[in-house]
Design a protein around this nucleic acid. Structure first.
Lengths: 351, 351
DNA sequence: GTGAAAGCGCTAACAA
DNA sequence: TTGTTAGCGCTTTCAC
């Protein structure tokens, strides 16, 4: 097997081989300023000869820091969170942090248990987007956490830093773009539920019409639970007396279903109907025609999360060791990028 | 903030409050057999009064076990791995294990670095599917690992347990199913590259024809890098003199592109062309018509991985502490489930 | 059955 | 600058 007994090498062995004390060895390993070149070289040689690697558990125990960030998302199978995780991993890796990922699966009990585990395992920081943003016990569990927390795109009544997507202005921009092209009957397809993204998107949708003194059309589709119903809903809407001339559609699978219905009805994009995707995916980019989309700047979000967390971890904005109280929580509102491609045109089949 | 100084409660505090020794407290916490009911009650009360939680780093250091499993996948953004991770998390949670997830991103250097980190952090076990299954240094890094390893669907020349999907027989079954319906011109769309899944699928595809004494049709599509080309390739193939009457298609996005091309050409499924999906997704299930598919039994795979790892971790099949040599590596071949839906019919537009 | 004590491997405070 | 040493919080002998 690949795991026969590899005799454990400790810092004592390194010190012994280098002919110095463990203290000196430790100093070299931690890049302490006060070490002679001579000692540094000897220790480094010993390290490479012995293939020494410091024991992480011991470091954690001693330094009270795990160099680990806990992530609680509802489900990584959602490409949205998968990409967020990937971006976060990329941001934290250079600092030596690893990410512990847990799926809450929208089960509050499970979410609470995960948060407890994060606490237990001494995560240095935590990034969460629980499915249950208003569940009292979940809020409580978050409040109990003793490490810095960043909330990702959830409206939670807790005193934590948060990174929030500006769904409101994003969708408003999209609607106004369509209106400026001459559309009036603009529909929107959203997920079920009342999560922050859905609430804010709906609000932005309505605001766009109101600000222009227009009536909000009765073209809001909120899917039940399965994606199959989106197809049906969409077919029905397209067959109605006053079908939409443009659609704003959320999510990958919802989008696919909607486009399938459009295609099935013999309609062409954008000649017969314009489409804007909420969330920019490979699918949206490579569709024929490429879809105008609202892009989540995920790299920027990850960078921001890293900054927020590391500042608190390193005490620059206050933590539990500081003698001053921590800085008040920051709420970062991140704008979407509106990417114009070829899926929108004036209504009326002019194309 | 949510992280003011919560005075650290240690096992000493618990022992003190309970009026027993730390040893006794530890025994209660670890459900040791030899403790009187009296002591047990006193300790448990103290634990709940103090809200005591054991320090994970200290436990790790002392017991030389981290209760953590490392996962190295090429990219969680691939729904395939996202679902694998979710299933694995579900399997290991009841045993108190958490999962550390890292994306190798097909970069060997990165993969090696991740494996090293897993070693450093004392993962109790590791589940890996590196993008570079034949990269010498990656193999080397795997061999150096001192904990049990499970390889997921990769052909790697290392002495580790492995869980392999039976792509060969899966695809062969699919092809023969189509042949039995009367198809001859059966195409297959695969990813680029030479990873095990692609190799085995291709082999199964060819074997199906050969076993029946038929020629292998020249209808193998391997996409370049982007999904857009799949659409083009598919369009071209469908326009050729001898277009396929049936297609076996890998992956979600490849599948979407292929179906879009089919739709664009005015062909209907299954009347004009039959389709089988390699991998069963929500998309395949809810498409109209629902697609016949080869399903990866991911729950079963996760259970198997858990079993393989825990057996070695707990020394039942040998580990580094055992005085006998570990049991030889197991290679588990997991069959696909062939799920017949409505996307296949005899050729000839009979539908 | 229980308590005392020895570390797990490391960092950091203190002495030299 | 360097060595010595005291723990970080826990588990686990080993006496009793």
């Amino acid at each position: 097997m690949g795991f026969q007994d590899v005799k454990k090498i400790s810092i004592r062995d390194v010190a012994a081989l280098a002919g110095v004390s463990v203290g000196s060895a430790s100093r070299v390993l931690n890049n302490a300023p006060n070490v002679t070149e001579d000692v540094r070289v000897k220790v480094e040689r010993a390290v490479s000869v012995l293939q020494y690697r410091p024991n992480h558990a011991a470091q954690s125990l001693r330094s009270q820091t795990s160099k680990t960030i806990g992530c609680l998302f509802s489900d990584v199978s959602n490409p949205l969170y998968a990409r967020a995780f990937r971006a976060l991993e990329g941001c934290f890796r250079p600092d030596g942090y690893m990410l512990l990922l847990s799926n809450g699966l929208n089960d509050p009990e499970r979410e609470i248990e995960i948060l407890r585990t994060f606490q237990l395992r001494g995560m240095d920081g935590v990034i969460i987007a629980p499915g249950n943003e208003r569940h009292a016990e979940v809020l409580d569990a978050v409040n109990r956490l003793s490490m810095p927390v960043v909330i990702y795109d959830r409206d939670m009544a807790v005193d934590c830093d948060a990174i929030l997507l500006d769904h409101f202005n994003g969708v408003k921009t999209a609607v106004k773009h369509l209106i400026s092209l001459g559309h009036q009957r603009i529909g929107i397809a959203l997920w079920h539920g009342h999560s922050r993204p859905v609430r804010r998107r709906l609000a932005g949708y309505k605001a766009a019409f109101r600000e222009l003194g227009l009536d909000v059309p009765n073209l809001i589709m909120q899917e039940a639970t399965s994606t199959s119903s989106v197809f049906e809903d969409m077919m029905q809407t397209l067959r109605s007396d006053e079908p939409p001339t443009a659609m704003i559609v959320q999510g990958t699978y919802t989008l696919i279903s909607a486009l399938r219905a459009i295609s099935r009805m013999g309609l062409r994009v954008p000649a017969d109907i314009s489409v804007i995707a909420l969330g920019d995916t490979e699918f949206a980019q490579t569709y024929d025609p490429p879809l105008t989309a609202l892009r989540t700047p995920i790299e920027q979000i990850a960078q921001k999360a890293r900054l927020l967390l590391l500042e608190r971890i390193n005490g620059r904005r206050g933590n539990d060791d500081a003698d001053h109280i921590g800085t008040a929580p920051t709420k970062e509102l991140i704008p979407y990028e509106f990417i114009v491609r070829e899926s929108c045109a004036p209504p009326g089949g002019a194309g």
